[in-house]
């Protein structure tokens, strides 16, 4: 794909897998990577309709994308996700570990299910996907981007398990950056604050006291949009960040980095 000004798109010929990309931040990441020329695998767990919509949006603009179902917390489904990626596009350069869930619960409300549901998707799923992706990333290396959260840096009350999963993600990012550096695979976390997604809408957060508080605490005076996150993911996926690895990048309007 050529950009309007004649500059080459930055991800021409590259292949990216985005987990949990049927809606919200993941869908926007898939669209942005495709707009830079990448062939994109839109992974989803349950919303085929959402994933198909993301794919047709991309292909309608002349991009390349396919939807592949798979629960990232199940090894056999991860295997199928990457096998289908290889079959469709023949290589792998970028993995965006975006699939994740958040559930808030005070200490007394924590159950085994609450713990395992979040750790299985947010942590185990990320490890399984990364493990399998490294097998397919070629000798020129690639980029793994973990969608973490500012809660790893400033954990809110009533969110200990969710915050712990994101703390684990940041630790895994640093460990894998060291482990995979010699393979020229960069590993970074991106740490969004509150972002206006379907999940935030359906949780009734928009225009609530929590929303107002987030705006008041954010120097840029608004909550994030999926595109804010997606543009930063494009940066971490491309050569522009070729010397960046093992880092955690807050994309949060200054909250709580200040």
């Amino acid at each position: 794909m050529k950009r309007g000004n004649g500059l080459m798109a930055k991800l021409d010929g590259k292949v990216a897998v985005v987990t949990g990309a049927s809606k919200g931040i993941g869908a926007e990441i898939a669209r942005h990577l495709a707009a830079e020329g990448a062939s994109v695998v839109v992974n989803y767990a349950s919303s085929k309709e959402g994933a198909d919509r993301v794919v047709s949006g991309i292909t309608g603009r002349g991009g390349k994308a396919i939807a592949v179902q798979g629960d990232v917390s199940k090894q056999s489904e991860i295997e199928r996700l990457f096998a289908e990626t290889k079959r469709a596009f023949g290589r792998l350069d970028v993995l965006v570990n975006n699939a994740g869930i958040f559930e808030f619960a005070p200490l007394e409300g924590i159950t085994e299910e609450h713990f395992h549901r979040q750790f299985n998707i947010n942590v185990l799923g990320l490890l399984l996907a990364s493990q399998r992706a490294v097998e397919d990333i070629g000798p020129d290396g690639g980029s793994i981007i973990n969608v973490s959260s500012v809660v790893s840096l400033s954990p809110p009350a009533g969110a200990s398990v969710y915050s712990a999963t994101k703390g684990a993600v940041d630790a895994i990012t640093k460990s894998l950056a060291r482990e995979l550096g010699t393979k020229k695979i960069r590993v970074n976390s991106i740490n969004p604050g509150m972002v206006e997604t379907e999940g935030v809408h359906s949780a009734g957060i928009l225009n609530s006291a929590m929303h107002e508080q987030a705006i008041a605490q954010t120097p840029l005076g608004r909550i994030g949009q999926p595109a804010d996150i997606a543009r930063a993911v494009v940066f971490l996926a491309t050569d522009g960040s070729g010397w960046v690895t093992g880092t955690t990048l807050p994309v949060s309007g200054g909250w709580p980095a200040v």
């Binding site: 640093k174 460990s175 950056a177 060291r178 550096g181 960069r186 120097p219 840029l220 994030g224 949009q225 804010d228 996150i229 543009r231 930063a232 494009v234 940066f235 522009g240 960040s241 010397w243 960046v244 690895t245 093992g246 880092t247 990048l249 807050p250 994309v251 949060s252 309007g253 200054g254 980095a257 200040v258």
Partner: peptide, 27 residues
């Protein structure tokens, strides 16, 4: 990376310290 921080690609990034160090200080 300075281009990223200068441009609208980082429109929601502020107050951070972005390390560009091949991972040296991150691990």
């Amino acid at each position: 990376v300075a281009v990223f921080l200068a441009s609208d690609d980082s429109s929601y990034v502020t107050g951070v310290e972005l390390f560009v160090d091949g991972g040296m200080a991150q691990i």
